[in-house]
Amino acid sequence: MSNAGLTIFDGAVLRSIDLNIPELKHGVTGARLLEISESKVSESLSGLSLPPHIIEAAISRVTAGDDVNFRLTELNRQQASEKLGVFVSAVADALRDTPIVVSILDGSTLKLFLEDEDDFAMLAENLFTDLDEEDKGKLCKSEIRKALSHMGVEMGVPPLSEFPIFDDIIKKHDADGNEELGQAQFAELLQPVLQEIADILHEKPITIVQNVEIFTGSRLRKILADEDKLKCLVENMILDVSDGKDNQGWADLIKTLIEKNGKELGLPPLTSDDEPVALLYETIFSEVNNREKETTNPSKDGFIDALKDILRKLEESLEATPVYCVTNL
């Protein structure tokens, strides 16, 4: 699934992968089968190179812990397909438990800027203003490199460390000198540089793993399943804000409790700017407000029941529709 330029690999796409290996006319060694398995999984995940620990776990499941002998074993086509299925399932299970979030940079975001004159003019102006810290109205050509870094993955520009050809592009467009440029000249230089980057990415996209925290309700689910732990947690949460309880309505108090204890509960930050997170809490707190209005004489037990009910609704919502917060864009 994807959202806002991000793609979440949670293993779902691997569940329907074709386990046939038509290129195998005869048998294959276990070592070769592992290479084929890793290649097929990567291809299904838009060329993503999986973290070593996921690959190692998949290999361990396929080889049943006997890596050396398995690699030397000759497998027929049926055996190879079966082992491929084991490998794929292992990777899918790992991604289900710990999804990987990536941005696939294929030049499309840059082309949107380049195809709209107004959007590009605003982009160039904002970059020029941000980089012109001394407000001289001039920037060196070499500032193009900073402009690209400033745009970043969110605007479709890969990190310089992931795109070695950056240096060649900058030199090709004479964008590494000390000559000073005005805003219009800077924009004229930036445009062909971005166009070439977009063209290269279109031919060979780059996949960038993002630092994103995904909230599926799993931690809250474990807490809710342990009645004693849940009771203790709820009582501690209430004690933590007990001084203000008499002056707060249920909705405000529950909001305070969630804001103070969200991390321990495995909930997304209440202050997050991500739209799905905001919508989640808006829906939940609307129910709290309605419940508070219907209660004429709220008691402590009634409040605790209401809080537990809200936590269960949050867990159900996150299980049905996980949300995530990007921390490095």
Rank of each mutant, 00 (worst) to 15 (best):
V153L: 02
V68L: 05
A124L: 01
L14N: 07
G85P: 04
E235Q: 05
P192L: 01
N20F: 05
T98N: 15
E43N: 10
R71G: 10
T207S: 13
Q79G: 13
G182K: 10
V102T: 11
E315P: 03
Q78S: 12
E319K: 02
A121T: 05
L239R: 00
L75D: 01
S2Y: 14
S81Q: 05
I55V: 15
R15S: 13
E264L: 02
V323Q: 01
L201V: 03
N76H: 03
K222E: 11
V277S: 05
T7V: 13
L105F: 08
A80K: 02
D240P: 00
K138D: 12
T129A: 04
N290L: 08
Y324M: 08
D243M: 14
G30N: 11
K136D: 11
I17L: 15
S37W: 04
N261Y: 03
F120L: 04
D228A: 14
L6S: 09
E154S: 05
M155H: 09
I55T: 13
R145F: 10
V101K: 02
A12S: 13
L267N: 01
D10C: 07
L311P: 08
E35K: 08
T98V: 15
I104D: 09
A58P: 04
A90M: 10
I208V: 14
T73V: 06
Q191F: 08
L233E: 11
E196G: 01
R291N: 08
K204I: 14
S161M: 06
E56F: 15
Q183R: 14
I17A: 10
P52K: 13
D66G: 04
L181C: 09
P164H: 07
T283M: 07
S218D: 09
N328R: 00
Q79V: 09
K263G: 03
A175T: 01
T63Y: 08
I55C: 15
C140P: 10
V326Y: 00
D132H: 01
K141T: 12
I206Q: 10
S42K: 01
P22V: 06
A92R: 06
D226W: 03
S242F: 14
A147P: 03
E294A: 15
G266F: 00
A124N: 02
K308Q: 09
G152M: 00
L50I: 15
A147D: 06
R77G: 07
I208G: 07
L105G: 04
V234A: 05
L189M: 12
Y281R: 00
L72V: 05
F163T: 06
R291S: 12
M155E: 06
T98D: 15
E115N: 09
D135C: 02
A121Y: 08
F128G: 04
P158C: 11
L311C: 07
E264G: 06
G11E: 08
S16I: 11
K229M: 15
L112S: 03
E282F: 13
F128Q: 03
N297E: 14
G217Q: 02
G249N: 12
V277N: 02
D67C: 09
E125Y: 10
A198I: 03
T327W: 00
P51S: 14
L189Q: 05
I8R: 05
G5L: 07
L45W: 10
